[in-house]
Simulated scan of single mutants.
Amino acid sequence: MRPAASPADAGAAAAETVLRLAVLLQAGVAPAAAWGHLSDTGDPAAARIAAASHDGMPLPDAIAAAGPAPGRPARRSGAAAEGPERVWADVAAAWRVATGVGAPLAETLRAVASALRDAQEAADDVRVALAEPAGTARLMGWLPLVAVGLGAALGFDTFGVLFAQPFGIACLVAGAALILAAQRWNAALVRRARAEGGVPGIGAELLAIALSGGVSIERATAIVSAAGAPADASTDLVLSLSRTAGVPAVELLRASAALSRHRARIEGRLRAARLSSRLLLPLGVCTLPAFLLLGVAPMMLSVMSTMPLSF
């Protein structure tokens, strides 16, 4: 049995599952039976979907609830969900749109799998770019504690000063507070630099699926909105261009979705590049002062306490 995918790999795992499902559907397997076959291969998401469907839950709702780990409630709103929840909410929205307009489900799932794979590759690029600055920040966070051990190794009474003298205790408390602040500050910077959940451009992708079923633009927009898909401001411009130029909107929407995923990749790389300089702020404001308080100040106090007083 395959292990469950981590949140970082949720897009890749979902893309693999959805692509296999599309192949089964294209071969003529019924949707419920296809999920059952995938469940038999040890796919954890497919197992949850098949079990929920067997219990009477509609397939789109079962797909939307496939993301959370067992025992954790699912959030049904695609805009509010994150990580695996958001990925499977997007798949469920595509399923609702395709079945609502009568679009070929297998082709729809192939397009969704391709979008998931592109989004996951972009997220992987960001994770790789973030690995070096985030690792450097974690390493520098140990610097004040290394200073304490270094002072003791050099023969200074560092621990005696920090735990026995009033000024040393004050240095210990202030240094520990600065270390904690630096860790939280670094974590917040790294978290903001990570890629957002979900698939960029999924709104335009779903609208293209809806229009491929032959419905009007107004009907397609209503179906996509009812499916719980996240809003995409670029779709209005694309639809306006389609009307003005007199060209089909489907390919324009798919190109817009691909461009959104490309922009997300570039913006993620830029956030990772800016992170390297932003991590210098907690280093200078918190980590280095903590180094002075926990390392340099106790050594100086230890030396001063051993010097004979002269009158």
Score class of each variant (00 low, 15 high):
Met1Asp: 08
Arg2Tyr: 08
Ser6Trp: 10
Ser6Met: 14
Ala10Lys: 02
Ala12Asp: 08
Leu21Trp: 14
Ala22Val: 08
Val23Ile: 12
Ala27Arg: 11
Ala33Leu: 11
Asp40Tyr: 05
Ala46Pro: 04
Ala66Phe: 05
Gly67Val: 00
Gly67Trp: 00
Ala69Gly: 14
Ala74Tyr: 03
Ala79Pro: 15
Ala80Cys: 01
Gly83Gln: 05
Ala94Thr: 00
Ala98Glu: 02
Val101Ala: 12
Ala111Phe: 02
Ala115Asn: 07
Ala119Gly: 08
Arg127Phe: 04
Arg127Pro: 02
Pro133Val: 13
Arg138Tyr: 11
Pro144Met: 12
Gly151Thr: 03
Gly151Gln: 04
Ala153Pro: 13
Val161Tyr: 00
Phe163Ile: 00
Phe167Ala: 15
Phe167Asp: 06
Ala170Phe: 12
Ala176Leu: 15
Leu180Thr: 11
Trp185Asn: 13
Ala188Cys: 02
Val190Arg: 01
Arg191Cys: 04
Ala195Ser: 15
Pro200Asp: 09
Gly201His: 09
Gly203Pro: 10
Ala204His: 13
Ile209Thr: 14
Ala210Arg: 03
Gly213Tyr: 10
Arg219Phe: 07
Arg219Asp: 09
Thr221His: 07
Ala222His: 10
Ser225Cys: 09
Ser225Leu: 13
Gly228Phe: 13
Ala229Asp: 02
Ser234Asn: 11
Thr235Gly: 09
Thr235Trp: 08
Thr244Ser: 04
Arg254Asn: 06
Ser256Tyr: 08
Ala257Phe: 02
Leu259Cys: 12
Ser260Met: 08
Arg261Ala: 10
Ala264Glu: 10
Glu267Leu: 12
Arg271Gly: 03
Ala272Asp: 07
Leu283Gln: 12
Pro289Asp: 03
Val303Arg: 07
Pro308Ser: 01
